[in-house]
Nucleic acid binder design. Structure first.
Length: 130
DNA sequence: TCTGAGCGG
């Protein structure tokens, strides 16, 4: 039947499977990697680990710092061992204030080699997006 | 020093 399609697919480069998965998962990539923004500048990995520990097993916590000033950029990443734990932590901590700042938690975008990082827009400027 | 979007070390 569709062996022509399979032949066409076979001609393509196969290492784009992760890219295809990223593209097919339309809005919420639902990984065990959490993107945590809205952090206070005084938050470090230890504080984030202590804040997200009761929601699951954390593999790693990384906070992004500025290369020049060395200050925290106000966002970081939390790696859980299970995506259910990440979902629980996101549902529990998203929107709640931590050290005086409301947290914005989303699922982290997967860094794909050779592909430009496309950031989904959260808020539509003109309100046209529903 | 003050700074507040945002996907990386």
């Amino acid at each position: 039947m569709n062996h022509r399609l399979m032949k066409f697919v076979g001609r393509l480069q196969t290492p784009t499977l992760s890219t295809l998965r990223t593209l097919c998962s339309s809005s919420s990539p639902s990984n065990n990697k959490l993107f945590v923004a809205g952090l206070s500048w005084s938050v470090d990995e230890r504080s984030l680990t202590d804040a997200f520990s009761p929601y699951g097993d954390i593999n790693e916590v990384r906070i992004v710092y500025d290369k020049e000033t060395g200050r925290s950029r106000g966002f970081g990443f939390v790696y859980f061992s299970k995506e259910d734990e990440a979902r629980c932590a996101k549902d529990a901590m998203d929107g709640k204030a931590y050290l005086g700042r409301p947290l914005r938690i989303s699922y982290a975008l997967e860094k794909v080699r050779g592909a430009p990082l496309v950031v989904p827009r959260l808020r539509s400027a003109s309100g046209r997006n529903k």
